[in-house]
Simulated scan of single mutants.
Amino acid sequence: MRLPPFPRVRPVPASPSRAVDVPEAQRPFRLPAAGRPDVAVVVLHGFTSGPASVRAWAEGVAGAGCAVRVPLLPGHGTRWEDLAATGADRIRAAVRAEVDAALAEHRHVVVAGISMGGALALDAAAHRPVAAVLVVNPALRFGNPLAHAAPLLRHVVPSLPAIAGDIADPEAREIAYERTPVGGVAAVGRIQRAAERGLGRITAPVTVFRSAQDAVVPEASHRALLRGLTRAPVEVVPLPRSRHVATLDLDLPLLIAASRDAVARAVRRD
């Protein structure tokens, strides 16, 4: 995951804590099954973003008849200060709880996610009996080497400029935090390490969607993913016209069609 350079400027202080409502576009949502009640897909958004960034993808997958669940991950949808105070364990536990709830109601469960959500989907697949995994530019590596120092730097530089909006489509816009919390970056680092450790445990088929250009997730992340998936069938689907946030970008129809195909194959296989 590529972050802005850590600046040599006066830190931006965290504002006092206050209750903030989640905007309607960023609220979690579920789409009921229409023909395949035995299949559910859990779709996970990326770091500092929210459900709005994956809504079109989720709706497209649901069009195949399966149920879809899109949670709002802890620390998201409110203020960047909330994400700064949210640990990796809480985010990982929330994802597993969502997957467990889906498994309790459906025979086949697919986990899907973009960027940090992709890492979380892989992490869940290493510990839960999912039917398949769909990941879009999953973040297993940082682009900025200084990001690894986030646990210490968070006390000096609470936040950095936003990292959202890496999209080729000039008409698309990602709703996300206006600042990147350094404490949240530290949590992402822990999520990345947990996800990479678990790659060898995954046996469900993994479909990897890879954008032609990505200013957020480095090529090293993709290499680590393919190297670590030693037991899972893997298919890589190029997204030639998209950048990092491919769920809002020009290859969205391709992403939806290939996701539907992957879900259908996994259900038949299972």
Rank of each mutant, 00 (worst) to 15 (best):
R90I: 11
H148E: 14
D100K: 00
A126R: 08
P181H: 09
P181Y: 10
V182P: 04
A101G: 15
A149L: 15
D82Q: 11
V70C: 05
D89G: 14
L120H: 05
L160Y: 09
R96A: 14
V130E: 06
H108K: 01
P71S: 03
P129E: 02
H108D: 10
W80V: 05
H108I: 01
H148K: 11
V99A: 08
E171F: 13
R141Y: 00
H148L: 12
P71M: 05
G113V: 01
S159K: 02
D89L: 13
E81S: 07
V185Y: 03
A162K: 13
A125W: 09
V156C: 13
F142T: 03
D169N: 15
R128C: 11
A147G: 15
S115I: 01
A164K: 09
P170R: 12
L152K: 00
L120S: 06
V111Y: 06
E171W: 14
I114M: 10
T78H: 04
A102C: 14
V95P: 00
Y177L: 11
A124Y: 08
Y177C: 02
P145L: 02
D123M: 01
V95Y: 12
G117H: 02
A150T: 05
S115Q: 02
H155I: 00
G75K: 01
L140W: 06
P161F: 07
G118I: 07
V109N: 06
D82G: 09
A176G: 12
I91D: 02
I167R: 04
H148M: 03
L103N: 09
G143L: 04
T86N: 12
V182N: 05
A94H: 15
W80R: 03
G183R: 01
R179A: 12
G184T: 06
L72G: 02
T180A: 06
L72D: 04
D169E: 13
A149G: 10
V157T: 15
R96Y: 00
L153E: 03
H155M: 03
L73K: 03
H127Y: 00
L103I: 05
L72W: 04
A97S: 14
H148G: 13
R179T: 08
N137T: 10
H76S: 11
I163S: 12
P181K: 04
L72T: 09
L83P: 01
V95E: 00
F142V: 05
H127T: 13
A124K: 03
V133P: 09
H106A: 10
P129F: 10
A97D: 15
M116P: 03
H127S: 10
V182F: 07
L134M: 10
A88G: 14
A93I: 10
P161L: 06
A112N: 03
D166L: 07
